[in-house]
Write a protein that binds this DNA or RNA. Structure first.
Lengths: 186, 186
DNA sequence: ACCTGAACACCGTTCAAGT
DNA sequence: ACCTGAACACCGTTCAAGT
């Protein structure tokens, strides 16, 4: 609050004339970020719509790195979040999924989108570091011949750089193909 | 720190004789939580091992509700985290995945585990609330005939309660089946 | 070796007082 | 209607002083 006030050339206390409090402010920021995710509607197949939506979400969360963790930590659902959920469910129901199946499918795809980013650090594969950096970091922290599999994977990525976009698309395609198999044949 | 000190019957300042600081403490807590996740090794098929591991992780994060978000927010990787990653990669490599494919598969499954829990709030499907509560909450917040799909799904869950475990298992099975299809036939 | 008390630099928030 | 200054109750952390 104090820092935001400084940035705006105003005292921290003045902010409370425009916002209810810090929580209110953070909720609003999340809403604005969610609003940037595009959910293709008519005109494209459900699979293509889901793929574009996922890539758009990933792009938005990459642009606003604070958004995904912030979204997770709050549970207030604003109008933009609701219409985002509504749009995705609409695509799935339109494709032939029952309402219950659409909810399940939404959770699988959305869970993946949100979970993918943050699990990369577990593999020491953060975007910032080069593959060699990551490999060295892992190898340096290891005592003896412990963690043989992690070492092997790290060495693999020392020679062949890890492609984040390709990895994300790999899992996304796998999930969408799995969902397609659930639809009654046409 | 002050609250923890109170709980231990000690002044907050005294804690710094045992811990480097708050960050150090939180890193240690995450490590202990991760250590509770069981990664089955030999003796079971890779698919069964992955499924048990996922269910164990979900159970641990349900028992320690602070663990998953805390794990996400820090990037230090301790020995337990490393051996967790190593164990999972070992199962996958042992199943016939290449090191690179194992890393991809790890990210898909692990991303799903971490993402699933927190996306439920987006559907107003939190464990605490009954299905009827959730439906009422969603319906009450809606102006006109807006969000028709979300309303339809909410009404569905008002009659048929949402089964979190089944939903998690649904997505997990879908992902594991997808991974199995990538393995060379035997 | 471990604890305490006091202090430091920081928070978010409130509120009377100004314009 | 909006801003300010001062204050409040809180943080994590440091450090000299005690035992």
């Amino acid at each position: 609050m104090r820092e935001l006030g400084r940035e705006l050339g105003v005292e921290a206390a003045s902010l409370y004339n425009h916002v209810a409090g810090k929580d209110d402010l953070l909720d609003g920021m999340v809403e604005l970020a969610i609003a940037e995710i595009e959910v293709p509607g008519e005109g494209v197949g459900w699979k293509e719509a889901m793929r574009r939506r996922a890539i758009s979400a990933r792009e938005v969360f990459a642009r606003h790195r604070w958004a995904a963790p912030l979204h997770d930590s709050r549970d207030r659902t604003g109008p933009h979040s609701l219409s985002y959920v509504d749009g995705v469910l609409g695509v799935l129901i339109g494709a032939g999924f029952s309402p219950a199946a659409a909810a399940n499918a939404f959770l699988v795809v959305d869970g993946y989108i949100y979970g993918f980013e943050r699990r990369q650090s577990g593999l020491a594969l953060d975007e910032g570091a080069t593959a060699t950096d990551a490999a060295e970091e892992v190898l340096a922290a290891i005592p003896e011949g412990a963690y043989p599999n992690a070492v092997r994977v790290a060495m693999e990525f020392a020679t062949t750089p890890f492609d984040h976009d390709a990895a994300f698309d790999f899992g996304l395609g796998l999930i969408l193909d799995g969902l397609e198999r659930l639809l009654p044949g046409e």
